[in-house]
Amino acid sequence: MAQMNMVQALNSAMDVMMERDPGVVILGEDVGYFGGVFRCTEGLQKKYGEARVIDAPIAEGGIVGCAIGMGVNGLRPIAEMQFADYIYPGFDQIVSELARLRHRTAGDFFAPVTIRAPCGGGIRGGQTHSQSPEGIFTHVCGLKVVMPSNPRDAKGLLISAIEDDDPVIFFEPKRLYHGPFEGDPEQPATSWAEHPLGEVPADYYTVPLGRSQVVREGGDVTVLCYGTMVHVAQAAARLAGADAEIVDVRTLAPLDADTITASVRKTGRCVIVHEATRFSGYGAELLATVQEECFYHLEAPVTRVAGWDTPYPHAFEWDYFPGPRRVAAAIENVLEAA
């Protein structure tokens, strides 16, 4: 077992897979010689060569389009979007091509592409370096969508994503790269070096796609969350003094409805938290699932805490970000409801 931060865990996942499978290649802006702006691919080009860790032009549509062609020709490409905010030029290739290729050819063609995209706020990135566009992609049938919250999951989930024959959009909350972040900008991030989930096996292992994880058991209320919000929710539960059951959704699509349903049926109350904007956000799908599966177990209306429906700001980041106070208030409201 090694101690790793999220960047090192992701690097290790790619290293392990490149070692095991000569078809695994990495394509993205600054991923090669430089090792990526977040250092996730550091050292990999030196180890595996320029033909497998490939610096790409600044053209996300070209990166995704070429990755599809590579996948059709038997490779297993990992395409890095430098920021999730930059993924939109590749949107048509993802939605109209990557997601639907297997279906439209009745299984005769497919492209096992993993798209990594650093997402989320809390880094003073303003509206073009802070977005959480996961809900745009969970709406697209044919894609799998993942967002880990800690190094151990990140490595195991990324290995599963690379091995998966379906396309996976792998969102990495960049506020977690170097430590769990509980949403209070006044508090420095704890280092993964001192965190049990920073203990990561050095070798190959997987965390299966499609399974959520109960990260804290509790009886009062279920908090459904993922990514950075897993840590915010834990801080919020402490603030509210609530015995919250916290579920890290981890794989957003396909959704592990069973874990969610079992928890909400047990607690009877539910708060859904994500950084992304609220209207038509992924939380609405979670809420609909809870309503359909748990209606007769609910003791209070289900509540969502999300980014406000405005563009992500630069100056007012901490008014925008769903921090522990907002989540705690929501937990208290749900607990106080009849």
């Binding site: 290649v25 033909a51 497998r52 549509g61 070209g62 995704v64 389009g65 070429c66 990755a67 599809i68 062609g69 590579m70 996948g71 059709v72 020709n73 038997g74 490779l75 490409p77 048509d92 290739q93 109209s96 091509e97």
Partner: peptide
């Protein structure tokens, strides 16, 4: 969706070269 196949063809060719 027109022209999507063009970068895909290039990617296929890149893979052949790799």
């Amino acid at each position: 969706n027109l022209a999507t196949q063009f970068p895909q063809a290039v990617g296929w060719a890149m893979a052949a070269a790799i």
